[in-house]
Design a protein around this nucleic acid. Structure first.
Lengths: 253, 253
DNA sequence: CGTAGCTTTGAAGATTTTCAACCTTAGTGG
DNA sequence: CCACTAAGGTTGAAAATCTTCAAAGCTACG
């Protein structure tokens, strides 16, 4: 009898949390045996350094990538050669979902700080999913979630003035860090003002001025890339501020 | 009286053939037997009229919807009660993909003109997909495509001035109509200036002024909702216009 | 130290929005 | 048939927001 490795619950948990398959495993839970199969197709990569590419636009799509630690930005080059930042990806988040359709990456992904990632060969993932309905379901959910987030971003960009955009961005970072067990109120930005501006559709100077204003207002403490949220309530209020009606109802997801 | 109908009967036939499952079946082709199974779970609905809802925000998610004829807009209400248009959906396009994750609709879908749609109960679709790998693959592609489109929208909104946004919007409509066999150069807008503005992050007045300017420039002919693209080349050029470095001898400024 | 790369800040300029008025079209009922 | 109304569209002028240009400050790093 072969000595099958014992899979304890805590092991799985650890595996899921460390490898950022968390995004796949946690939401509804696969059977332990299925988690093993999933783990089996994951390629763990060496740590990447700032400036390294996970993939580049126009290159053949093979794998999804999950950020384990660090952070990654996705971007395209506009017709004028300017970089357009499309997103920032923190631990536990997936990249490359937009490439499934075209079989070719539609954007580039560059590491912002020393980071580690998992690589998930998509063909094998698909093959696995066709045998594990729960995994299939999780993948659908994952893709759908990405659509929802993009939709939120579209709404933000088409409706909100600069102040609200930056506030939303900071709250989004805060929530995402918190969900991964980091501090919700204090973090280091791994991206420049320029990159934040590009992402939010603002000039870098506008971003800088807003950081200053938020600090003056006592909402934030800003020390270059070191952000401390001093007044979460008020930061939230900046977003809901709009016409400042009377209602306060805002449902959390 | 217009001499030439913009939408001919044969065009409609083409669009209807395959129901709008075209978006599912055509891209890579399911086996005929599988197409039958797919057809079997589709609910065909009666025609809907302007103002009818396909689904509403916060309601339970059960089905995806495919537009067969007509057009549908998706929108949310901002915290101030203002409507934020998220998208316009033409024949052959799917709605509801963002709800898979939350099991609840995250936006509302309202019919802009007399339209017909198919309803695809998602649970049954998923069940089917788990037995038909090709269908699973098509669904992944479909979701991925949506992500890619949303990403394009994000890039448009965060990078482009008003002129380019409207030009992109018109080109997008043109391409989508053409793909379904309608005229690429002449179509009727089923949405108001207000709705276009909301979608593009512009005031309705700005949209109106741009239509006027495009017409003055000879790029479009605009008669209320009836749009004729007179100079497709120049419309494309509006988008690529950016801050070009060395080329660009001519500019509309 | 000194340079390079961000970041901050100020002032001028451009784009876009807002406010307001007027116009056009389609639908309604006298 | 016509006037009336409501909704959507156009247009102008003032105001707000944001960007651009320019310069100077700060940090990190060799």
């Amino acid at each position: 009898m072969t000595a099958t490795p014992v899979v304890s619950l805590s092991n799985i948990k650890v595996a899921c949390q460390n490898c950022s398959l968390a995004s796949l495993c946690l939401p509804m839970g696969l059977a332990p045996a299925d988690v093993d199969k999933l783990e089996a197709i994951v390629k763990r990569s060496r740590p990447l350094r700032r400036g390294d590419h996970l993939f580049e636009s126009e290159h053949k799509f093979r794998s999804l990538f999950a950020v384990k630690t660090g952070s990654v930005k996705t971007y395209t080059l506009g017709p004028d050669g300017n970089e357009q930042v499309l997103g920032f990806h923190l631990p536990g988040e997936l990249l490359g979902l937009d490439a499934i359709q075209s079989d070719v990456h539609r954007c580039s992904a560059r590491v912002l700080e020393t980071s580690s990632v998992c690589e998930l060969p998509f063909e094998r993932l698909e093959e696995l999913a066709s045998h594990i309905p729960t995994l299939q379901h999780q993948l659908f959910r994952l893709l759908s979630k990405e659509i929802g987030q993009d939709t939120d971003m579209v709404a933000l960009l088409s409706r909100s003035p600069a102040e609200e955009r930056l506030a939303s961005f900071l709250l989004s970072l805060s929530e995402r860090y918190q969900r991964r067990g980091f501090s919700a109120k204090e973090f280091i930005l791994s991206m420049s003002r320029q990159e934040i501006g590009s992402y939010l559709g603002l000039a870098l100077e506008t971003v800088s001025r807003l950081f200053t204003r938020f600090q003056e207002d006592g909402i934030l403490r800003v020390d270059r890339k070191h952000i401390t949220i001093l007044d979460l309530e008020r930061l939230r209020k900046v977003i809901a501020h709009q016409t400042n009606c009377d209602q306060q109802a805002q449902g959390p997801n």
